[in-house]
Every structure is written in structure tokens, then in C-alpha cells.
């Protein structure tokens, strides 16, 4: 396949960036998108240029490190697929492909296509845990949890924290991510004790980081490689409302 790539190049966090065109003549349709970039980088190194920096690690769609916006869509055109599992056979010969980093104020570009996603960690640190000391846990079967609840929590837990939801949202909102994390723990009996505190602090951390708000576009769910549902956002909205009312009356 012949391709023209328009790739965002940016020299460091404070450098100015621009799209640069690269031509590739012999791309295998069986290669993955990242392998195609690997080969482009090999060419660049050979010709003495600096390779394009991009984040990647497991390359099997689970670590959540890869973060490319391909033709305006985070992780590219295939649904339920991360950029690392996207294969070139989904593009056509001669196509021009634009590759940009995640765009959001809380995700500053560090270099080329690499962004800093640490505010997502901060949201989790604010309350994305159940306070349980190592060794203090009761037997795993002490609390029965219905299969439905366990499956529901698992649906939320499938989030790989890649940030595509933020990147896709016209408002750069992190609601889907935050909601998936809070809903997983808030749905389980183990997480009930800290339910109100959790949702209040995670939303506060999300706001503080400067993410936008949810305007219910649903773009986040559409690009999510794990298909995380908007239901979790509804759940978080509901739980936050309850927790806020309780807080007003001094109970949360």
C-alpha cells in the first residue's frame, strides 16, 4: 500500500507543533498501525532524522498506553479497537491519514504524539480505591455478590484508562473514565462504605484538573475500545446528587 501520513510533530512540551507529511510506499496491509509507524521511524533514523515519538507498550489492546487520534478519531476508525490492534487493511491504498495526539488541556503534549495523562491517575488517587490494608481482608466468599452485580462491576472495570473518551469528547470531558472507575467500586458491597466520599472526591479531582463537562454527546462510548457504557455516567450523576444532598445535611 502507498500512504501519505500527516503526523503531528512537536519538539518538547513548550515547542510549537505542526503537521508534517510523510510518504510510505510499501506498507503491508497485515501490519498494525503501530508497526507501520515503527517502519516509518526506521526510515527516519536511517535518513538521519529524529523518529516520531508515540506511546505504546503491550500492543495487545489492554495496557491503554497507545494514544493516537487517527483521522480525527481516537484509536482510529475501527470500533472497539485500540490503535495498537488496528491493522492497515482497514485503510485504502493511496489514502492520506492524519495522526494527532490526544487533545485536551489536562493532557499536554510532551513530544510529537506523546501526551501526559497523569490527571487520570490523580482522579484515581482521589478516591478510586477501597481502603483495605493488606492482610485485613475477610474470606473471599464471606460476602456473596450476585452474578449480575459482579458482571456489571466487571463491565465498568474493563476500562483500560487510555483516555480516548477525553480525546473524543468535544468538551474534553473525563466523565466516562471517572464514572467507570467510581461505578465499579460503588456497585460492589465492598465499596459501599466509601461510596459518597469516593464520588465527591473523584468528581472534584476531575473538575480541578480542567476537564470539560459532559454534554451527553456519546462520542466517548463510541470510541471506547472497551465499549464502556454511558450508563456509568448516569450512575455517577445519580450518586453524586445523592452524596451532595447528604453533604448539605452533614451526612456525607
Amino acid at each position: 500500500m502507498k500512504l501519505t501520513l500527516r503526523i503531528w510533530r512537536q519538539d518538547g512540551q513548550n515547542g510549537s507543533g505542526r503537521l508534517v507529511d510523510y510518504k510510505m510506499d510499501d506498507v503491508s496491509p497485515d501490519s498494525s498501525f503501530l508497526e507501520m509507524l515503527d517502519l516509518l521511524n526506521e526510515d527516519l533514523i536511517e535518513s538521519g532524522d529524529e523518529p516520531i515519538a508515540f506511546d505504546h507498550d503491550c500492543r495487545e489492546g489492554i495496557c491503554g498506553m497507545c494514544s493516537l487520534t487517527i483521522n480525527g478519531i481516537p484509536h482510529g476508525p475501527e470500533r472497539m479497537t485500540t490503535a495498537c490492534q488496528l491493522h492497515m487493511r482497514h485503510f485504502s491504498d493511496g489514502e492520506t491519514i492524519t495522526v494527532e495526539p490526544w487533545r485536551a488541556k489536562p493532557f499536554p503534549v510532551l513530544q510529537d504524539l506523546v501526551v501526559d495523562r497523569s490527571p487520570m491517575d490523580a482522579i484515581q488517587q482521589a478516591g478510586g480505591f477501597i481502603s483495605v490494608r493488606t492482610g485485613s481482608a475477610p474470606d473471599g466468599n464471606a460476602i456473596p455478590i450476585s452474578k449480575e452485580i459482579a458482571d456489571y462491576a466487571m463491565d465498568a472495570a474493563a476500562c483500560i484508562g487510555c483516555g480516548a473518551c477525553v480525546a473524543a469528547c468535544k468538551n474534553a470531558s473525563a466523565m466516562l473514565f471517572t464514572a467507570a472507575k467510581s461505578s465499579q467500586l460503588n456497585s460492589l458491597p465492598q465499596g459501599k462504605a466509601e461510596k459518597d466520599r469516593r464520588v465527591l472526591s473523584m468528581v472534584a479531582s476531575m473538575d480541578e484538573a480542567g476537564f470539560g463537562n459532559c454534554t451527553n454527546y456519546g462520542e466517548c462510548q463510541a470510541v471506547c475500545p472497551k465499549g464502556i457504557s454511558l450508563d456509568f455516567i448516569a450512575q455517577m450523576n445519580r450518586e453524586y446528587a445523592v452524596a451532595s444532598v447528604k453533604q448539605i445535611f452533614g451526612r456525607a
Binding site: 487520534t69 483521522n71 480525527g72 494527532e100 488541556k105 489536562p106 470539560g212 463510541a222
Partner: peptide, 23 residues
């Protein structure tokens, strides 16, 4: 707040499923 959250927009813009009304 939403405008501030994305100071730099994408060069290639795409919408996957959001309705015109919502946008």
C-alpha cells in the same frame, strides 16, 4: 469551561455518532 478544556482542536475533525442537535 468546555472551551478551556480543549485549547487546541484537532486539524482533522470527525464525529462518530453525536447528533447535530447535540453538537
Amino acid at each position: 469551561q468546555n472551551k478551556k478544556a480543549r485549547p487546541q482542536d484537532y486539524e482533522a475533525k470527525a464525529t462518530v455518532q453525536a447528533s447535530l442537535a447535540s453538537r
